[in-house]
Amino acid sequence: MILHPSLASADPLRLHQALSQFDHAPIGSWHLDIEDTSFISNITFGLKTVRSVFEATQHPLSFHLMVANPWPWFRALSPFTPGWIFVHAEALANPAEALTAIRETGARAGLAFNPATPLEPYCYLRDALDACLVMTSEPDGHGQCFNPTLIDKVAACARYFPDAECWADGGIAETAGQQLKLAGAEHLVLGRALFASDNPATTLESFRSALNG
């Protein structure tokens, strides 16, 4: 199981401190949600902050584009050598074209799916996807809580896209992480579970021990 701390959950006034805590931690990437209120009522990072994060860490960066128009972002993120770029299926009329454009940045190309979006219509992209991200929570007015019914959707993702990395993202605590691993998830995005704790680095190690033995 590969773990990706989500910087959107860190204290925005202490981003450098958050990055420093994981300087030597075995994480998969720093995960940056780019939000413009299209998918969630929040605005997060612009390119100035992305550049600062890129210059402050040796870890790869993964990007989750929660925006209405993702196309300008592909080229804009290219200078930051992204490891992964996820774009929401709901924002795309031509997903295959977007996945090709993402790969041209050097990143692995992924589709993200809101909880209500079915996976089946996108099975034709099986050979075009490097990764698939299933949202396991949504804006619900209660802190974007993990929804256990979506464990079955993660399992379906692992079946439908066997050659793509299976990611899960949204309200994931340690017990949920174990259930998601059994369902076939290979990557977990961790936000509040880390940054709401007293010691995020220690909490990350607890996740690693629980999930990887």
Rank of each mutant, 00 (worst) to 15 (best):
S6H: 04
S9V: 04
A10Q: 12
D11A: 12
L13C: 13
R14F: 14
L15F: 13
Q17P: 02
L19H: 14
F22C: 12
A25E: 12
P26Q: 12
G28S: 06
G28Q: 04
S29D: 12
S29H: 10
I34T: 03
I34G: 05
T37V: 06
S38E: 04
I40D: 01
I43N: 08
I43S: 04
L47D: 13
S52K: 08
F54T: 00
E55Y: 11
E55Q: 14
A56V: 06
T57P: 15
P60K: 03
P60A: 07
L61T: 00
M66Q: 07
A68R: 05
A68Y: 05
W73R: 01
A76H: 11
L77N: 07
S78V: 00
G83C: 05
W84H: 08
E90Q: 09
A91H: 02
A101S: 13
R103Q: 13
P115Y: 02
L125N: 08
R126S: 14
D130E: 11
L133W: 01
L133E: 05
T136H: 05
T136Y: 03
E138T: 02
P139Q: 10
H142R: 13
N147A: 12
P148E: 14
I151N: 04
K153P: 01
C157T: 06
Y160L: 13
D163C: 11
D163T: 13
I172N: 01
T175Y: 11
G177S: 08
L180Q: 05
L182H: 13
L182F: 07
G184Y: 12
A185L: 11
A193I: 02
F195Y: 14
S197M: 09
T203K: 15
S209W: 01
A210V: 01
A210H: 04
N212R: 00
G213H: 04
